[in-house]
Design a protein around this nucleic acid. Structure first.
Lengths: 223, 223
DNA sequence: GTATGTGAATAGATTCACAGCT
DNA sequence: AGCTGTGAATCTATTCACATAC
């Protein structure tokens, strides 16, 4: 991980939980709740209460002993840490099944990540309108990024096109990438990339299932 | 995390990397490579070589000193650990944008997870054919699970329907669940659930982006 | 010479447990 | 009495470094 030092560093594991807290807090705010204890928030987020308190301490979010945390304050503090309330337009490379689904996913817009641009390598797809946006040729990616002021890229190409897609995004100035292609890709260390691997998730479940059922499956290969 | 203890336990972090090794090994096998060193495999998987060796040691996968690991053997061993070569049919609850994309996702079938059943709560969606499968009412989930012998459930409903979807899956006998709904859900401890949270991933990227670019909209000062 | 296998060292994350504040 | 805030303990994971084997 890169050490920059402008803002104080927060552990990765904590950062990964902040969006979950945020969701829980939004629910509470919606139902008019004004104060929340670490125990309740922990329950909403599915984690340990001490963990919540330690996480919040990294944000310098203050609670009141004997009482709890103020929902509105916490909300605001977490939002600031996660990038302010500024909107970060997203460009998607690869408008196949997954790319289309992602471009229509409400959760992105709601979270401050509007889908601003779509590009694809397939001439059959280019020119079509998907979720209100016209798909443009991947060769024009730099233009699309410039016009939309996108700061985040999503790669939803087949595995064999992922590295090229990432290279193009980096070339176009994108520094934050979410990769759905089932491939490990290389990026310069000033680029932040996260992998979301759908098949892998199922395979991990498969491991646990196998352990549970414990059945020795006598197929092709000998052990 | 759940632990049972029938088969020897492998660290979670290792299990999460096995599918990545598997992919790398498949590539090597396809190009006719027969031996691989921990260094090369590490490169393919984007991890440290010592890490690879330690991971493989948990599988009792043997390499040859001075030479490396046999690609075919490794492939077979990892496959066994990840649930054998048996196929685990999947039922998807929620056939919206995301559910449709997932039902068409080739990677699942290739990984041994064919999509065998689709259910939805919306009468407008029920009866339609998606990716060759007719969508059935969520009320018939137990039937669908029984008929398809599904062992894995994917939840792709809106957040507010996720808990109910999960409950139904558990009720129908499913013990492995992948949840795409942006909600924390409760399950009995004999059920294994994994969360894939799309908006959260972007928010985590947002944190790092925010750190990189420095604080609020104070544009560059010195230049 | 080359690459594995692993104990030891390090780093990171979680949980405990309790002092301290309201 | 109740809940936060945090040092200490614990657990997990990664990386190093080198003896061991081919």
């Amino acid at each position: 991980m890169s050490e920059v030092g402008t803002i104080e560093s927060i552990p990765d594991a904590t950062v990964a939980r902040l969006p979950v807290y945020l969701r829980g807090l939004l629910e509470l705010a919606d139902t008019g709740v004004e104060m929340v204890s670490s125990v309740s928030l922990a329950e909403l987020a599915g984690v340990n209460a001490a963990n919540v308190r330690k996480d919040l301490s990294y944000l310098h979010a203050h609670g009141t002993r004997g009482v709890g945390y103020e929902v509105g304050h916490l909300l605001a503090e977490i939002r600031v840490v996660l990038g302010g309330s500024r909107s970060s337009p997203v460009v998607i490379v690869g408008v196949g099944n997954l790319g289309r689904a992602l471009s229509r996913y409400d959760g992105f817009l709601a979270g401050g990540f509007p889908i601003a641009g779509l590009v694809d390598a397939d001439p059959m797809v280019v020119g079509r309108k998907v979720a209100g946006t016209v798909v443009r040729p991947v060769g024009e990616l730099a233009d699309v990024v410039a016009q939309t002021e996108a700061t985040v890229g999503i790669v939803a190409t087949p595995a064999n096109a992922a590295q090229e897609a990432v290279d193009r995004l980096v070339q176009a100035g994108i520094r934050s990438i979410l990769n759905f292609a089932p491939a490990v890709v290389a990026v310069p260390n000033f680029v932040d990339i996260r992998q979301v691997d759908l098949a892998t998730e199922l395979q991990i479940l498969g491991y646990h299932q196998h352990r549970r059922t414990g059945d020795s499956d006598t197929s092709l290969v000998s052990g």
